[in-house]
Design a protein around this nucleic acid. Structure first.
Length: 692
DNA sequence: CTAGGGTTAG
């Protein structure tokens, strides 16, 4: 087409203007330019149409970009690539990939821009299979050695968990620039490879490649993953030496805050945070979690309050993080409150928010509430299903867990290794041995998931609880893994339940050799001996533990009354109502003795699994104290609201029996959440089928 | 028209 000089001038002006709109994200101006363009009859101009696509894509309107694209009489590689990258930018990786395929059908050849976009779309879509296919195309077309493409490929493999493949390509890559290094350092930023990230970071500097913010952020993440505070401080120091003021570098500062938080140095984290001129929501989130993980819930909530006042925009990450804190501590009132607040926000229905809410309700013992929110979720992902399955499992409703696991697949959600683990664990808690075996079998045939040792452990647990110890033992022997301490502990615990001293002795010895610093092993083994009357053996095991100076985790229980959390340790007498608590417990014990002949189950006192403290006797177990306080506050009349008690370890057997008795006498319902599962006590019975 | 970084839910 021949254009007059003035028309050509107008055309160039429009193109310049569109690029300006695209750069400045000025959708309003862009729409005007589009109208002008049509009026002037430039509809079928290839270059201008491409500029339009790019403008709309960058301004977040891929839908209009696609309309422009569809109307074009001719499309070149730029048209296709612009739309592809628009899809990807908009979070539609699959859309980008299908365009990539369609482009081949239209016989348009990709260039380096197209290929790097396609590679990125693959990892965004989580499909390393597509990624390696596109990789093959890059090799065939010779684009794989172009740095933009090559770097994308390395990044793709690293982000899809194939770090070794990424490293192989990285080593062979001819001209490594800073981005190439950064991609690989980021790929190494994990627990298992963190040290390699540090080595590469040094190597990069030795080779004279200038490290930038990206390098720093990634290497800081890496040292955080391996928990290397000292190395982290070194990196921090070199940041200062090289004149990298973190105040203006949000991401580097964020990485630094996270590093200090991960190492338990919340004070240092706060210092860095305060140094930032512009505090991002990410830094706030990191800090909030830092406080919570270090046991300062009040500080965490205060931090959240400050965030809300700061004017920084709240996002789904903070809400789901906070919800996780409430879930862990079972702070149901705060959880509900935050949930109500979150629902009014634009991201209130985001997956991570909904998932964290459902999890919070489950961990607070409100199964129906959780089910309601789960059912109402507009979209579910594999995590949503897993949360619910785990919840059912912990509440001893294994049948529901298995049913949900089936439903998830009928709704075309592919289970991953965590969901398999959740359902297998639910089976073992509910004694569903057959289901456990069937699901495990299915897992072995599932092309998408590889069975891990934890899956084996669940089946070993199921078999063990059912008393099929030899089968459990055989399964361990048949594993393609070297057995770890965890799986032996599972078997040992089964030996204890079923009083199998011979196997217990054998397994116990293996454990004492391989995991000799863990007090749990000694306690369990000594219990097996003591239960069977082998007192001398029991004593010997306890002696070894004692000479090694092994300490146990202190047991603690808590109960929430009027939004206040009351925490008790074993033998705790610090609560102002301590005399009243003991009086209530005493009275109930007397009644129980009269009605059903209950006496303390002394075996738990002599060698309890969690043996909270030497001084504590059964009457002063933390869960009983919490129960006593709850009863005083709720009143001793029959019936009333469900009382919820929480413990950081497993509930002791005597307390378990005791609470059963109380639930019968007072016709009250108790829900106890311990480290293992939920116990719902009602009318003298407990919901769990796996307690001993 | 293209490549890299810090926070979350199981």
């Amino acid at each position: 087409m021949f254009l007059s000089a003035s028309l050509n001038f107008e055309r160039q002006k429009l193109a310049d203007f569109l690029r300006k709109c695209s750069k400045g994200l000025l959708i309003g101006q862009g729409l005007k330019a589009h109208a002008a363009l049509e009026k002037m009859g430039f509809n079928s101009d290839l270059m201008l149409s491409n500029d339009l696509i790019d403008m709309y894509a960058k301004c977040g309107r891929v839908d209009i970009a696609a309309q422009v694209f569809d109307k074009m009489p001719d499309r070149n590689v730029v048209s296709w690539t612009s739309l592809m990258s628009g899809c990807l930018r908009n979070g539609d990786a699959f859309g980008a990939l299908s365009l990539f395929l369609a482009m081949w059908g239209a016989e348009v050849r990709p260039n380096e821009y197209t290929l790097s976009t396609a590679v990125k779309a693959c990892w965004s879509a989580g499909s390393v299979e597509s990624g390696s296919q596109v990789h093959a195309v890059c090799v065939k077309t010779g684009f794989d050695v172009v740095s933009v493409v090559g770097n994308s490929i390395i990044d793709m493999y690293a982000k899809c968990g194939r770090v070794e493949d990424a490293a192989r390509l990285f080593d062979a890559f001819p001209e490594k620039n800073a981005i190439c290094y950064n991609v690989m350092i980021a790929g190494y930023a994990s627990e298992e490879n963190g040290h390699k990230a540090v080595i590469l970071f040094r190597d990069m500097r030795v080779k004279g490649i200038v490290s930038d913010e990206f390098s720093y952020a990634s290497v800081l993440k890496a040292v955080g993953c391996v928990g290397a505070v000292r190395q982290g401080a070194q990196v921090h120091a070199s940041l200062i030496v090289e004149g990298f003021p973190i105040s203006g570098k949000k991401i580097v500062a964020g990485a630094l805050i996270d590093l200090y938080v991960k190492c338990g140095c919340v004070r240092e984290a706060r210092e860095v945070f305060e140094q930032c001129e512009e505090k991002s929501v990410v830094s706030w989130t990191t800090l909030i979690l830092g406080y919570a993980q270090n046991g300062s819930v009040a500080e965490a909530m205060e931090c959240f309050r400050q965030l809300m006042e700061s004017g920084v925009e709240i996002d789904g990450f903070v809400i789901s993080s906070l919800m996780g804190v409430f879930a862990d501590l079972a702070l149901v009132d705060q959880g509900k409150q935050t949930h109500c607040y979150a629902m009014k926000l634009p991201f209130g229905l985001d997956l991570s928010v909904c998932n964290s809410v459902v999890d919070m309700y489950l961990k607070c013992g409100l199964v129906e509430e959780a089910e309601r929110h789960f059912d109402e979720m507009p979209v579910k992902n594999v995590i949503s299903w897993t949360v619910m399955i785990t919840g059912y499992g912990k509440h001893g409703i294994g049948e529901s867990a298995v049913r949900l696991f089936d439903r998830m697949q009928s709704e075309n959600v592919q289970p991953d290794e965590v969901s398999y683990l959740a359902v297998l664990s639910a089976c073992s808690h509910s004694g569903l041995v057959k289901d456990s075996q069937n699901i495990f079998f299915k897992l072995c045939l599932d092309r998408h998931v590889k069975p891990k040792i934890e899956h084996y452990a669940c089946v070993v647990d199921s078999l063990g609880r059912a008393g099929r110890l030899q089968e459990a033992r055989n399964l361990i022997d048949s594993m393609p893994f070297r057995p770890n301490a965890g799986i032996w502990q599972t078997l040992l615990s089964a030996c204890k339940v079923h009083g199998n001293v011979e196997m217990g002795r054998e397994v116990g010895n293996i454990l004492l050799d391989s995991d000799g610093e863990n007090s749990v092993n000694y306690v369990m083994l000594s219990n097996i001996f003591a239960n069977a009357g082998y007192w001398k053996d029991a004593e010997k095991v306890r002696e070894i533990a004692k000479t090694k100076g092994l300490k146990k985790v202190a047991g603690r229980s808590w109960v929430e009354i009027d939004k206040k959390v009351h925490i008790f340790f074993g033998g705790d007498d610090t609560h102002p109502l301590t005399p009243e608590i003991h009086a209530v417990l005493e009275e109930l014990e007397k009644k129980m003795k009269e009605e059903s002949g209950y006496t303390h189950m002394v075996q738990y006192a002599l060698h309890d699994v969690e043996e909270e403290s030497k001084a504590a006797n059964l009457k002063a177990h933390s869960e009983k104290l919490a129960l006593g306080l709850a009863l005083i506050c709720h009143g001793l009349e029959e019936g009333g609201d469900m009382i919820r008690i929480f413990k950081n370890l497993r509930v002791c057997g005597d307390c378990h029996e005791f609470i059963k008795g109380v639930s019968k006498i007072l016709k009250k319902v108790f829900l106890v959440r311990d480290s293992n599962r939920f116990h719902k006590f009602e009318n003298g019975l407990c919901s769990c089928k796996d307690y001993w």
